[in-house]
Amino acid sequence: MNEQTEVSQLLEAARRRGQEATGYATLPMGLDKFTAYVGLIGSALELGKLIQTEERDLKVIDTHYEVEVARISAAFREVEAAMIADFQRDESLKAQTFEAINLLIAAGQYEIASEFHKRLLDSFQRPSLEAIIDLRNAGTAGSGTRLSLR
């Protein structure tokens, strides 16, 4: 009897030392079946829930990124349209001013022609490339990409 108590005490002490060393409780032998059934039930419940919501979750993720892609596409269209508008305005201004300058030079009006020319050069004030890239980065923040000029 004493011997049995001694063994039990030794086992208990060993279990305690194991718990102290690993930080979690060691499972008593008799609980094997119980924990196995609980684990199976838990897994079955989780699986059922996951299968039930799988299609819906995949659709939600798809829709989220569809919205993001549409937003990115719209941001680019805006930047491109602004650049094309700047270009058309500059080209038209340049063509008209040069035409006027050529007419003035042909008429010998050199000083007025020079003044026109000076105004033409001063009027080029389109956004810098850095500003366009900043606009691009702001519009596509959710894409995980970033451009920079160094």
Partner: peptide
Amino acid sequence: AMAEAMQG
């Protein structure tokens, strides 16, 4: 989303 930004 990345492909869209890169194509843009």
